[in-house]
Write a protein that binds this DNA or RNA. Structure first.
Length: 505
RNA sequence: GCUCCGGUAGUGUAGCUCGGCCAAUCAUUUCGGCCUUUCGAGCCGAGGACUCGGGUUCAAAUCCCGACCGGAGCACCA
């Protein structure tokens, strides 16, 4: 008797079930439909991840569709088309089909013509403000009463470039007396005499569909069964339903989610990012300060962490402000096992070593590459009688204090002003456990074989320091700088003598 | 102004459709402890929420009404 309940709980682990009202043998078809007017952001990632996840869950199809029908206000960026494909692949969401709206305008024209023939659309010549006045008074404008023939003629003239921009639009008849003003006779096509960035489209067309029309027609043509989109598009559904009714189509199931704000990034829009990048405020779309997927990838985030992060947000309709801490937590789990450990000292300070009783200096440290892989070592050679420690650790040192240079030896601080430390005991650190004193990381001096490292951080600042020689062999990998954080080795310069890393978290 | 939609811990989230198994789930964060040659990972423990007010009912986070708060649309943007 108690069985069914338990089962219910288990099932609720992933995303909620979609409402399934599919005909026999019909497959779930999901789509993600961005405007490629910039690189995919965290917001886009949610769409990619959730839609593709549902497609996977039900053994359905995932379509990537570029809604790029605004060559003016939200002009597409040519490179962004490929970037989206890369980002999808990176997120494990390779689309089963890719559709570019700007190359399918003729399909939309055909549907427009059909609507005109059925008398449920008309060419309207009202200036925007004049129409708004009619709309606010729930009155029809004179053009609404035009005959099918007149409309078809006007439409033909529109397509042929016979009107200027803003001179005419095509409207869908929904009813001027509708309660909700947002639904009254909405615009389906407008005139834009501007070249489209895609060479294959160029200047071939002057009549462009608006999102509501383009998206509605495409969803039907592509056989989309479920739409998940922002709740800012709720009215879109209502507008589009009139179109579906006019044409006798069945509207897909819809789910709307709320706005997502990432606390660390605040509000941002793709258009805004683009403006700033073009102004040179950022290095590019993968600048570590930006909330783009390209930037996250460069910082060393793992795709499965990004996926889990978005799946955990679900599809609720409330607006949310999430912290990246949740993403960091996921990524830490993903990256911890594969990141080798290295020492990095920020704002290095040289520590002179004085030989202890044994009379010699420890020259080589055998250090674990990973705390849970006990047989995996890396060697770090010191230059002899000096090492570097971080400025932060230096600031806390006091005379007479004992500390451990991890994997190398224990030392006692003799003096701080010139930093001098005496090697304690036999010059190794394997015999005693360091319960009662601090263990710090260190690095060889650049004069020995230390490597200069610049770490670029997401707040735009840069940390300078020194690390071990072996990191120059970690190009492209995520490593952990002990007691500092995870970083991705982004570039190796000057024949391996210098490294640039991006801070992950 | 008109029209939609939402409101569970610091942050997300489950539960709400079909009221009782909910003195409310899970994750993250915070705070303790264990372990550890990292301020990493892991393990253990603790704290913390149903916006408010009415109503229906034996019983309400769940249903109804109202208030309050928040968001969105009313573009020849997506």
């Amino acid at each position: 008797m108690a069985e069914p309940q338990k089962q219910k709980r288990e099932e609720k682990q992933g995303l909620p079930e979609l409402p399934l009202a599919l005909a026999n043998g019909e497959k779930v078809v999901m789509r993600f439909a961005p405007n490629p007017n910039g690189a995919a952001t965290l917001g886009s990632a949610r769409g990619i991840v959730v839609n593709s996840e549902y497609a996977k869950k039900y053994g359905g199809k995932f379509i990537l569709r570029f809604d790029d029908t605004d060559p003016v206000v939200k002009r597409p960026l040519l490179e962004a088309y490929d970037w989206y494909l890369e980002d999808c692949a990176w997120l494990g969401a390779e689309p089963d089909e890719v559709v570019v709206a700007s190359e399918r305008l003729e399909l939309y024209y055909k549907n427009a013509e059909e609507l005109l023939k059925r008398g449920v659309a008309y060419v309207c010549f009202c200036p925007a403000d004049v129409f708004k006045a009619y709309k606010d008074r729930k009155r029809a404008c004179p053009h609404r009463a035009a005959s099918v023939e007149e409309n078809l003629e006007s439409w033909g003239k529109m397509l042929g470039g016979g009107y200027d921009e803003k001179e005419a639009v095509l409207r869908i008849k929904t009813g001027m007396e509708l309660e909700d003003p947002a639904l009254r006779d909405w615009v389906a096509f407008r005139i834009l005499k501007r070249e489209h960035p895609r060479a294959s489209v160029g200047r071939r067309f002057v009549v462009w569909p608006n999102l509501d029309f383009e998206s509605a027609v495409e969803d039907h043509l592509l056989g989309v069964t479920h739409i998940i989109r922002g709740k800012d598009l709720m009215k879109s559904e209502k507008r589009q339903r009139f179109l579906y009714d006019h044409l006798g189509w069945n509207y897909p199931e819809t789910t709307h989610w709320g706005r997502i704000k990432v606390q660390e990034f605040g509000k941002f829009s793709t258009s805004e990012l683009r403006k700033r990048i073009e102004r040179g405020e950022y290095e590019g779309w993968d600048d570590p300060r930006l909330p783009t997927l390209r930037a996250l990838r460069r910082r060393g985030f793992q795709p499965e962490a990004v996926r889990k992060f978005f799946l955990s947000l679900g599809v609720s309709q409330t607006d949310i402000a999430v912290s990246l801490k949740n993403l960091y937590a996921e990524n830490r789990k993903a990256v911890d096992a594969l990141a080798s450990r290295y020492f990095f000292v920020r704002n290095p300070k040289e520590m002179r070593l004085k030989a202890g009783k044994g009379g010699s200096f420890p020259l080589v440290a055998r250090a674990l590459k990973h705390p849970s892989r006990r047989a995996d070592y890396r060697e770090i050679r010191t230059g002899g009688d000096a090492v570097l420690i971080s400025g932060d650790d230096f600031a806390k040192l006091r005379e007479g204090e004992k500390i451990r240079l991890k994997f190398l030896c224990d030392v006692e601080i003799e003096s701080v002003k010139p930093l001098i430390a005496k090697v304690v005991g036999s010059g190794s650190c394997t015999e005693t456990t360091a319960k009662d004193f601090q263990i710090i990381q260190w690095a060889p001096t650049p004069a020995a074989n230390g490597i200069k490292v610049a770490v670029k951080k997401p707040n735009g600042s840069e940390d300078e320091g020194v690390s071990e020689p072996l990191i120059s062999e970690e190009l492209g990998n995520v490593v952990q700088f002990e007691r500092y954080g995870f970083v991705r080795i982004d570039s190796v310069l000057k024949e391996g003598r210098e490294v640039v890393a991006y801070f992950t978290h």
